[in-house]
Write a protein that binds this DNA or RNA. Structure first.
Lengths: 144, 144
DNA sequence: ATACTAATTATAAACATTATAATGTAAGAA
DNA sequence: TTCTTACATTATAATGTTTATAATTAGTAT
């Protein structure tokens, strides 16, 4: 069990969210790696362990985790949402070919928030940024 | 007819994309304002003029325009894509309360693309950024 | 152990988007 | 101008993701 998973489980104890085997498995899947799976990928990954689990359970619980701030929903260009276990602030680099998502840390875009606040009169809360391109693996495939 | 629309029509002449009344109307709708409508909003807006137009026509043509670089598809959190007539490079400031989208110009984030290319090994093509907050109108409402 | 409440399952429905096949039409050639 | 051909449109069905519903099951506090 990773530290990140343990922390997620602990933070759930302070809420009124019940722990169930399915929820534990979904959290484990999300927090034990830095992947950004779709709901369906999670569903398929846990099929062996929970043959009777409904896909609605995956969606419901992802929403529960989102509501308590444990995961983020990423709505990018492709057809289905991806889910990201929340760690620190970071950005995503996305492969336009295979859809793979890689984390990317970049320091200061605070200036952008400040400037946009002045220009638009908005009270700015946050921003998001994604970078699009072709991943090394797909670049190789193209060359063949 | 606005200059932006005329430019869009001109640029289509240099491609092999045929002009049809439906295409003209969709372009007019997109290029005569700076709105960011969904496919369904465009469909409904043109219902009066083209009672027989199929929703597939809207989707097909938005894809055509996207392919030749006249429009951009914006996939935000909500369920359906929005479409933006391409002008110069710009970003969007989005009101979390009423959903309003305001354009925002900001010069150089090229450095982000360069750096992410080095760090991840991707061949980077583009990036997008959105800024989230509360617009002046909704701020006022909150204070009452 | 019991009871209460919430979670899960199975299923159907909703919704956006895409595919298919038949019909209609834009645009260049004769 | 008319003809021709390839492309666009329509109507419809299909697809894929996500949500809603109702019945059953299972956590948790007492």
């Amino acid at each position: 069990m990773t530290r990140r998973l343990q922390e997620a489980l602990d933070s759930l104890k302070s809420t009124k969210v019940r722990m169930t085997p399915q929820r534990h498995a979904i959290l484990e899947h999300l927090f034990s790696s830095f992947a950004h799976p779709t709901a369906d990928e999670i569903y398929k990954a846990l099929e062996g362990k929970f043959p009777n689990m409904s896909v609605a359970t995956v969606y419901n619980n992802l929403r529960v985790f989102k509501d308590v701030g444990l995961v983020k929903e990423l709505t990018y260009g492709d057809s289905s949402s991806r889910f990201d276990s929340v760690t620190s602030e970071h950005y995503h680099v996305i492969c336009e070919d295979c859809g793979k998502i890689v984390d990317f840390h970049y320091p200061g875009l605070d200036e952008v928030e400040t400037l946009s606040e002045h220009v638009t009169g908005f009270k700015v809360n946050s921003h998001r940024m994604e970078i699009y391109g072709i991943c090394p693996e797909c670049l190789k495939k193209e060359q063949h």
